[in-house]
Simulated assay, not measured.
Amino acid sequence: MVQVAKIGHAGFKTPDVEAMLAYYTEILGFTLTERGSDGAVYLSCAVDHHTIILYPSTESGHNHFAFQIDSSQTLKQAAKQLRDAGIQVEQKTDAQPGIPELLEFCDPEGHTLQLYSTIQQVSHGFRETAIVPEKLGHVAMYVHDVHKCVDFYQNMLGFRVSDWLEDSFVFMRCNQDHHTMNFLQSKQQKMFHIAFQLRDWAHIQTACDFLVRHNITPLWGPVRHGIGHNIATYHKDPDKNIVELFTEIDIMLNEVGYFEPRPWHEDFPQRPKVWKDTPQAVAHWGGLPPKELME
């Protein structure tokens, strides 16, 4: 089984690269690291060469998601394990600046995934202006078959289930963070939202003020979720992709099987479970999501 260590980057198609570039650099505070000969733009928020890739296109939406594998495995070993399971894998060299080699394949919903073992490190660190997240935290997807996704990400990529909301919404982790990938049963097949981690509650507050000063109205939040217990706020980027900014997400103590205890937990200890579909599961405080968020 492949063991994913973290979510590395996300690629987006966009009909207006410059508008999205301005959003990621002037609002979120990413750093432009490179422009490709094909017009693609590579942006970093910390030490990896890129966290976001913007591809010129006539369409908008996600293009792919990429994961860095655990250092105990090689990319060759990962490719063999996937192929032995009947998955078609394409091995690419120098397909992206900063990543010498990667694997590309699709999940059961047809979404393109990439795996890599190494990526170039950049030395610029964190900027001092704009919002400046700490990292790319997670991605949530609308899918046709949530159970097939759980089986694939669990048995092929080493993810583990953190929590369920009834039988239709699952939160999966690849490391200690409560969730890296979320899958929501739906008639649609598309990204629900992408999420970036901020330092703390004060950072959420200043981020909301910053968004409003730049004429970006939050869709929802701040709110403290029940599942995962993260404090979050949601808004849309120029292409109408939903972006979550969050902090204080639950941390799994994998050795003992429960989440690091915190005062706002319902259970002591707080273990992975199936939550009932109640307002408390969605939000401890901050209200329920507007319809616009769930379109």
Results as ranks from 00 to 15, higher is better:
125 G>N: 06
128 E>G: 09
132 V>N: 15
134 E>Q: 13
126 F>T: 03
117 S>E: 13
108 P>H: 11
109 E>C: 06
125 G>V: 04
130 A>G: 08
113 L>Q: 05
117 S>V: 07
110 G>K: 04
133 P>S: 02
109 E>S: 14
131 I>P: 10
114 Q>E: 03
120 Q>L: 06
106 C>S: 06
128 E>T: 15
123 S>I: 06
111 H>A: 02
108 P>R: 01
118 T>K: 13
108 P>Q: 02
115 L>E: 04
117 S>K: 14
113 L>K: 14
113 L>R: 09
120 Q>H: 10
133 P>C: 01
119 I>N: 08
135 K>H: 12
131 I>C: 12
129 T>L: 10
117 S>P: 04
122 V>S: 05
127 R>W: 02
112 T>F: 06
114 Q>V: 05
134 E>K: 15
107 D>G: 00
118 T>R: 10
115 L>Q: 08
124 H>D: 02
121 Q>L: 12
121 Q>E: 14
132 V>I: 07
108 P>K: 05
108 P>E: 02
123 S>W: 13
126 F>H: 15
128 E>Q: 14
132 V>G: 04
109 E>I: 09
114 Q>A: 02
125 G>I: 09
134 E>G: 13
106 C>F: 00
112 T>P: 04
127 R>K: 11
125 G>D: 06
135 K>M: 15
120 Q>R: 14
109 E>T: 13
113 L>G: 06
112 T>Y: 08
112 T>G: 00
133 P>H: 07
112 T>W: 08
111 H>R: 12
131 I>H: 05
131 I>G: 05
113 L>E: 00
124 H>K: 05
121 Q>P: 02
123 S>N: 11
128 E>F: 10
134 E>N: 13
129 T>N: 15
114 Q>L: 11
124 H>I: 01
111 H>C: 00
124 H>M: 01
135 K>Y: 10
113 L>H: 10
135 K>S: 11
112 T>L: 09
132 V>D: 09
127 R>T: 11
129 T>C: 06
135 K>A: 07
121 Q>N: 14
124 H>V: 01
117 S>Q: 15
108 P>L: 00
122 V>T: 11
106 C>A: 01
130 A>M: 12
135 K>Q: 12
108 P>T: 01
120 Q>I: 02
132 V>C: 13
114 Q>Y: 09
131 I>Y: 13
114 Q>I: 07
135 K>W: 10
107 D>N: 07
112 T>R: 15
133 P>D: 01
109 E>R: 08
107 D>P: 06
113 L>F: 14
135 K>G: 02
134 E>L: 15
133 P>F: 04
114 Q>T: 13
109 E>A: 10
116 Y>T: 01
119 I>S: 11
133 P>N: 03
107 D>H: 01
127 R>L: 03
108 P>Y: 03
109 E>P: 12
120 Q>A: 09
128 E>W: 04
116 Y>D: 00
116 Y>K: 08
131 I>F: 15
107 D>S: 04
111 H>Y: 10
